[in-house]
């Protein structure tokens, strides 16, 4: 087989784009050989950035504001008296395209009126955050103002079982006993939608 030189191969090969550049093999000039000017030039760029506005923030100490339409982790809402709004009507679960929501309903007993707003409530309510696509359809389907997508992310976890969120994780703090935590958890989103 006929052997080809490197230059011949390059000429035979068709360039993929017209931006291909032949590498310059000229000997360096005196200034280039002096080394230090190029170092100072590079350092000037480096130190110049110290006086510019920083594009990054120190997460998690500093957090960027969320867009008002951001859809994050779900919260189960309570009314002003601290009673759970959810009546386990199942509309969020039927609206959910990822089938992430499951629930089991129970009847409110006498004496539980301060816990649940309606005679039926969700005894169990679970969202599988691995399945959830944060589309917000559950929030739109809810007739009772009970579920909202808040302005937080689902925290990372090493195991899958950490992503099955039950009522303990989803329920908003009680507005009467813990008003600050309630306000923080509710954020601005619930108010915007109201």
């Amino acid at each position: 087989m006929r052997s080809l030189s490197k230059a011949q191969i390059i000429t035979y090969m068709q360039a993929l784009t017209n931006r291909a550049k032949q590498v310059e093999r000229k000997p360096m000039t005196l200034l280039e050989r002096a080394y230090l000017p190029a170092i100072f030039k590079g350092m000037a760029i480096t130190f110049g950035h110290m006086f510019k506005k920083r594009p990054t923030i120190n997460y998690p100490e500093v957090k960027r504001p969320f867009s008002p339409v951001f859809r994050g982790l779900h919260i189960l809402n309570r009314d002003e008296e601290g009673r759970e709004n959810c009546t386990a009507c199942g509309l969020c679960a039927v609206a959910c395209p990822a089938e992430a929501i499951t629930m089991e309903a129970a009847e409110r007993k006498a004496g539980e009126e301060n816990l649940y707003r309606e005679e039926k409530y969700a005894a169990k309510y679970e969202i599988n955050m691995l399945r959830c696509i944060f589309c917000g359809l559950c929030e739109e389907a809810c007739p009772k103002d009970a579920i909202y997508l808040s302005e937080t992310f689902a925290p990372a976890n090493f195991q899958r079982k950490g992503f099955i969120y039950g009522k303990d994780d989803l329920l908003i703090p009680n507005p009467i006993t813990e008003p600050e935590a309630f306000a923080e958890a509710r954020g601005n989103r619930a108010q915007v939608a109201r």
Binding site: T102, M103, A106, E112, K124, Y125, E126
Partner: peptide, 20 residues
């Protein structure tokens, strides 16, 4: 992990509605 539809709970065997 899930507490919904637990294999031990048979809602169909309860006479009336489930309570807490």
């Amino acid at each position: 992990e899930s507490e919904v539809n637990k294999p031990g709970v048979h809602l169909s065997e309860i006479a009336g509605p489930a309570h807490s």
